[in-house]
């Protein structure tokens, strides 16, 4: 399933790299500890987090995540956004809390598209 489909179904607001919404999402990871995300997330994951600072872009780039979703309507910091545009990492914003968003995406990915 691509990011665009997930963004539409869950009313996500895209903040960067809107030309990369065809990125394929193969799984997901939820976490705010960067070392944990580094160690346990996978390429193609959509990363759900509350962190808004620029280092999330470095982690997503390094792990080749499909994109990042910020929860609870948190907005990315300005330098985060600049870096995400530069690295072509889609950052999206959801008004849902992490638990609900994770569940919704888990269900979406579980369905054959």
């Amino acid at each position: 399933m691509d990011i665009e489909t997930i963004a539409k179904k869950l009313n996500l607001e895209v903040r960067s790299a809107s030309d990369r919404l065809k990125n394929n999402v193969t799984g997901g990871y939820t976490g705010d500890l960067l070392s944990d995300v580094m160690a346990n997330s996978h390429e193609g994951d959509i990363w759900i987090t509350r962190q808004v600072h620029q280092n999330i872009v470095a982690v997503a780039t390094l792990k080749e995540h499909a994109g990042i979703i910020l929860v609870n309507s948190c907005e990315p910091a300005r330098d985060t956004l600049e870096k995400a545009i530069q690295e072509k990492i889609p950052i999206m914003v959801s008004n849902l809390p992490a638990f609900e968003l994770t569940g919704a995406i888990y269900n979406l990915l579980g369905k054959k598209d």
Partner: peptide, 8 residues
């Protein structure tokens, strides 16, 4: 910032 989790 999400660092310093003692996992490094």
């Amino acid at each position: 910032m999400g660092f310093g989790a003692g996992m490094g």
